[in-house]
Amino acid sequence: MSLLEVRNLKHKFRDGTEALRGVSFKVNSGDFIILAGKNGSGKTVLIRHLNGLYIPSEGEIFFEGKPIHKQIKWVRQNIGMVFQDADSQIVSQTVWNDTAFGPENLRLPKADIEKRVSNALLAVGMMELKDHSPHNLSGGEKRKLAIAGILAMDPRIIILDEPFTNLDYTGIIDILGQIVKLHKSGHTIICVTHEIEKVLYHSNRLIIMDRGLIAEDTLPEKGIFNTHKYGITPPMEEREGIEIVRDMTWLK
């Protein structure tokens, strides 16, 4: 049984926009999926269905074999989501409290909350900033805080929406390192990005979206030759796919 399964998902907004037009795919435990596609192809809308933030117009989503709307709390606890805009995710006035937000909503005992928060902050290397105001952090730190906030909920799947936008070089390296570390520690990763040259090497699957549909769902070294059709620009070379993919990381 796959960990997460999406069946024929459609989403039509009230203004008539058909953002998703029949999307199906499965996520297996341990996957590292890159979800790519042009602006407006439906990536954000798709992932927001996966933990029940958006309700599908049609189709169904299963987590651990059960429909997600029947276990929404369990699903949100297990599928952590890092949003595209780091600022809008800030919900508290200190780094520590912000990280504690999820576990507090889970109604865990105080000692457990403290343990989870400190583990999460240590994992992303933000412990020294625990009393700082999140609004004043750098872009990279804000995103690490968002990661810590979902780590503290102990999820199985972590979804990141455009985690590299608005970051400078060191910020990107830092976040990329975090994502790879999360995957190595057993998390299933779905990373939405069109900057595939930064991260594709670490993934085991490349899903490309195009106008509300999945256009490709293959191994990175196969999909890499088709990306240009969908407005994603990797360096096209006359080499084996595996060799090209090997260069596709900023972690050296």
């Binding site: 927001r48 933990n51 933030l53 709390k73 949003f83 809008s88 995710q89 919900v91 999820g102 909920m153």
Partner: peptide
């Protein structure tokens, strides 16, 4: 816009 995003982020972290 921002309030919408924030409330969605809070919802996904189980805020009730």
């Amino acid at each position: 816009l921002r309030a919408g995003e924030t409330s969605m982020a809070m919802e996904s972290r189980l805020y009730s």
